[in-house]
Amino acid sequence: MANKPYQEALVPGAFKWIAGLALFILLVPIFVVFLAGLNSGDFLTFPPEGLSLRWIKAFFESDSYLPAYLYSLIIALTAMVISLILGTLISLLLVRSAFAGRALLRAVVMSPIMLPGIVIGLSLYLFYISFDIGLARTQAGLVIGHVLVTCPYVIGMVSAALVGFDRSLEEAARSLGASRWETFRKITIPLISPALIAGGVFAFIVSFGQFDVSLFLTPPNNTPLPIALYTSLRYTFEPTAAAAGIFAIFLVVVSMVITAKITNLRRITAANYN
């Protein structure tokens, strides 16, 4: 766009103050978690006492937060892989085949993003029990719930990439003797890989921080991190929980930086929230 410096000068002064306030509200709680996890005392005081790594150490020795963190990682990785496979195949159908009811199908598979997570979790829980299929409060049952809410992110991003895809490249590969699978692997996948990576990262992060869907589906012997943190937060403020939070913050920030490096962030948000 033209007139670059002019554009920024257009932002009214009052807007800058409110924008600053909004950033403050967004970031201060995260900053406080950092302080609480690196604080040397038993709880955070004002003014702060001093920094130490004792709670970080306590996190690595913890028999509740560390296993919960690792369990969340496993669930998130599994949900991500399943979402990538199912989501990419659904996107191919949605973009490349014209049929009646295509818009409806797209609305159905995208709707778990907009529906209350607690309703999705409860529906699955009731379904598992009333049909007696042995999935209630199991790891598989939990992963299924997570795939439902992560798959739409993959579908949103991959189908957006497929819409702008030049199919003559695939035709060229085919006419040169490549099989369908070879064409898909060597032409299609590399060309949509930014969308696959972005969709995968989003699926991973949404699953890793998922509370609502997990509420009714968590297995009794294994707890994902958000549920473990919630349970402890109901009774007390443990600095070890804040230390676990610090590692979760790292994971999220790294994921978002990776996504920003490989794709246009604005396109991602357009694909999912507009």
Binding site: V28, P29, F202, G209, L229, L233
Partner: peptide, 11 residues
């Protein structure tokens, strides 16, 4: 994208 429970800890 950060887990809401962690943000609530801070709040």
């Amino acid at each position: 994208q950060l887990d809401m429970v962690i943000r609530l800890f801070g709040l």
